[in-house]
Amino acid sequence: MSDGKRGPALFSLSAQSLSYGRTRVLDSISLSIRRGERVALLGPSGAGKSTLLNLLYGQQAASTALQPQGGGIVDLLSVYQNIFIGALDRVGNLPALWNLLRPLPSHRRDITELTRRLGLEEQLWQSADRLSGGQRQRVAIGRALYRRQPIFLGDEPVSSVDPLQADALLKHLLAEHETAVVSLHNRQQALDHFDRILVLREGRICCDCAAAELSAAALDQFYQQDGTPEAGEPAPESDGWVIRTS
């Protein structure tokens, strides 16, 4: 779409730090994100990605569709109602109350259409507690899409769906939102769909570059443990434990 670098700054942080108790979660982060940018947030768990997303959300809450980790699904409500939550600011109190008893026709039409695209039309009237992890995540994406806002902030929005679906969903999310900041753990997805990549580590930004300048191998290095800088070691081993067959 547009050339991101030219848009005005939507988000900006300068030397921002944040601590919970004695633990420093963000350590003097300086950052500016412009309208039209698609930013992927990478980094090992505990690096501060979610905290950073929260901070950004606070700056543009009114025009942002947020998808936190877990999606904020309400178990007892149906898929339809869970997605409808995204539109609560567009309806009054009484229609909202009525919609719990009988779905409002226009929203029913829109949401049915939306679930068809998300592959959830079979589950439209099922309560969310009966869904699989992947389905729940798609419901959360549905809610974000139904917010109909220009900015999307997602915290691992496609972590529970299979890679093929994840690609399609990401594509769709990015097509529907002008600006997006998304944390991911799949590096290839970041390279494939985003134009800017931020890598966080221990509360600091340790890489902030255009996706075109990076490769999967280069990204892997940021996940290496401090004490194991040995070059050439296969990446998966550093990610967790591997069963060795001697």
Partner: peptide, 18 residues
């Protein structure tokens, strides 16, 4: 979490209902 994904400014009634 579910409350956080509500559109900002959603009133108390709707927040409780949904």
């Amino acid at each position: 979490e579910p409350s956080r994904t509500l559109p900002p400014g959603t009133g108390g009634l709707k927040r409780h209902l949904y």
